[in-house]
Write a protein that binds this DNA or RNA. Structure first.
Length: 592
RNA sequence: GGGGUCGUAGCUCAGCCUGGUUAGAGCGCCAGUCUGUCACACUGGAGGUCGCGAGUUCAAGUCCCGUCGGCCCCGCCA
């Protein structure tokens, strides 16, 4: 089908262009046929331009226009005219193009939903027709931001002497950490590649090779359950530096984030960012990714309640737990039902119950008041800095659980009381540092690496590895923006012996370590420089910059929460022949 | 692995608790009218596997069970 090729886009004509002859190509956004006057809005990625036909002058065009429907792809030639009734809401609203000739390039079926910004279509339908959904300007905006981010990344890190190197997508399966996606192959039967959860080991090897500063915008894969901010394949800005310490990496990243915010949002942000240890983040905000845009900090009150008459509290303290609280300002009016709702919410995080104290009309209203002395009660109220009208929520459990529960409640109260709405266009940037190196995993009855097994312990703590491994802090750091973990990094182990020690702490025998990571241990013996780095979640950064709370809206072709692609129907069953070639037998053959 | 919630016209939803006439509304769509619209307006019309399956019942969109799918959360995500 022939068409006249455009010489201008739909977003750029202005009043200065009056009188020009132009050719436009695009999609019919809408048509308004007034009988004696026909309007079309023509859309492309750059914007909208109004086309007009005067039937009294051009009956032939009016006739042709009768068959034009929304989302048809057309070309139109005409003269740029000043509008009789301009539309101040459109960038091109002062002009219109009076058509002298046009043609249909391609017809379109009626789309299942309209190509508009404020539609409320089920996401299921949107994902099935993703190619139409992606026409919506609101969605396209996210990909324009995303593209700008690629450019800032490449420019900033190139200016800082980083070089981009591609690492394998088919790699060795690593048993530590998230579940791998496995890839069989015809040539090597019974063996499997894995898709990378991260190029971690490769980038460390690149440091051994002397590349000094590496970066890559890279896809990573994890076969774990999905969430509104988690997809099985996602993009990281991955980087690694040699002869660098934590401060080098942190200040480099602060420079990057500054530039990103300036470039994309034209906002100047202050650096250095706040710093907080893991311990502080947990005890003040109940999270290792604290949202610092508002207060409502957690207060620990264990000290005053050691011997209190409320067994839930004293018992928790006795078994090395804590009693802590948050003050839900102005929430004393919460009904029994609302508080029950909060209790249910807390239970999702492992709470057995939730104690509360209301301060109403100068009186204390609380089911636990009768178990506490006046001094104990007052010490709680004082710690909470509570005044009349406040609701104090108290949690007592193990250390981790107490703070995690209160951290979740803090966010929930902020949502319920409108604090979240107030702060939604604010930004807070911080580093959480000094994570524990290890955490004990009840299920496998061993220590597992909190960050990853290549993380360097803090120098002062290395000697603790022998006898008190749970006390060892890692030289690791997370970049947290608005309560989201946007990046995580660490100084890596470059010493073969420490790395072996680490593997053995994780319960790996020498043979096992050799089998799984022998190539790394080997490389560390051939002149490994001290090095460290970080990986940024690019999708999450785009989400924050575009103010979107759903990762699917910043990924062109995302999966649903059950890992399906509704548009192309993957994952799909495969032919028996294909399986035979790979020597794969299915344990349970699906019907059909 | 677990919990919550949703699935009815092309789209968004009401109806379901308390089973009973021909399953409704708005938007969109189709036809007609209309010379300044831009959410065009007005008149008329078409449009349904109530996700799927099985059950209870004289009777199921509605009740029970199963199943598929969307979303959110816990676990999980080094």
């Amino acid at each position: 089908m022939s068409f006249e090729k455009r010489n201008i886009t739909c977003g750029e004509l202005r009043i200065e262009d009056e009188g020009k002859e132009v050719i436009l190509n695009g999609w019919i956004d809408s048509r308004r046929d007034l009988g004696g006057l026909i309007f079309f809005d023509l859309r492309d990625r750059y914007g909208l331009t109004q086309l007009v036909i005067h039937p009294e002058k051009r009956a032939d065009l009016a006739d042709k226009a009768k068959d034009i429907r929304q989302e048809f792809v057309i070309w139109a030639k005409g003269i740029v005219m000043k509008r009789e009734s301009p539309n101040p809401n459109m960038p091109t609203g002062l002009i219109e193009v009076e058509i002298s000739d046009f043609g249909v390039i391609n017809k379109a079926k009626l789309p299942p939903f309209e190509v508009e910004d404020d539609i409320e279509t089920n996401e299921e339908t949107r994902l099935k027709y993703r190619f139409i959904d992606l026409r919506r300007p609101v969605i396209q905006k996210n990909f324009i931001i995303r593209n700008k981010m690629y450019q800032v990344v490449h420019r900033y890190f190139a200016e800082n002497n980083f070089i981009e190197i591609e690492t394998p997508v088919l790699m060795k399966s690593t048993p530590e950490g998230a579940r791998d996606f496995l890839v069989p192959s015809r040539i090597n039967k019974n063996r499997f590649y894995a898709l990378p959860q991260s190029p971690q080991v490769y980038k460390q090897l690149l440091m051994v090779s002397g590349f000094d500063r590496y970066m890559q915008i890279v896809k990573c894969f994890r076969d774990e359950d999905l969430r509104s901010d988690r997809q099985p394949e996602f993009t990281q800005v991955d980087l690694e530096m040699s002869f660098a310490d934590r401060e080098d990496i942190i200040s480099l990243l602060e420079g990057f984030i500054k530039e990103l915010w300036k470039e994309i949002l034209d906002i100047d942000i202050d650096a250095p960012f706040k710093r907080m240890t893991y311990n502080e983040a947990m005890t003040r905000f109940g999270s290792d990714k604290p949202d610092l845009r508002f207060g409502m900090e957690i207060k620990t009150v264990s000290e005053n309640l050691k011997s209190c008459g409320f067994k839930v509290f004293s018992g928790a303290i006795e078994s090395n737990g804590e009693v802590a609280l948050i003050n839900a300002k102005g929430c004393a009016g919460y009904s029994r039902k609302q508080i029950d709702g909060l209790t249910e919410f807390a239970k999702k995080y492992g709470a057995k119950g939730l104690a509360w104290i209301k301060l109403v009309d100068g009186k204390v209203n609380s089911p636990i008041a009768k178990f506490l002395s006046d001094d104990e009660l007052n010490s709680i109220i004082t710690a909470a800095e509570a005044v009349d009208g406040d609701l104090i929520l108290i949690s007592s459990d193990s250390w981790t659980r107490t703070y995690t529960i209160l951290g979740a409640l803090r966010l929930e109260i902020a949502r319920q009381t409108g604090i979240m709405d107030k702060i939604k266009s604010d930004f807070s940037f911080s580093w959480v540092v000094d994570f524990p190196l290890l955490e004990y995993d009840e299920e496998s009855e061993r220590y597992i690496a909190m960050h990853h097994p290549f993380t360097m312990p803090k120098t002062d703590d290395i000697e603790l590895m022998e006898n008190e491994p749970e006390k060892v802090r890692a030289n690791a750091y997370d970049l947290v923006i608005n309560g989201a973990e946007v990046g995580g990094g660490s100084i890596r182990i470059h010493d073969n012996e420490i790395q072996e020690k680490m593997f053995s702490l994780l319960g790996m025998s020498k043979e096992e370590a050799e089998d799984k990571f022998g190539f790394l241990l080997n490389a560390l013996q051939y002149g490994a420089p001290p090095h460290g780095g970080l990986a940024l979640g690019l999708d999450r950064l785009v989400m924050i910059l575009s103010g979107i709370d759903n990762i699917r809206d910043v990924i062109a072709f995302p999966k649903t929460t059950s890992g399906l692609s509704l548009m192309d129907g993957c994952p799909s069953y495969v032919d028996t022949k294909q399986l035979e070639e790979l020597s794969i037998a299915l344990i349970k053959k699906e019907e059909e």
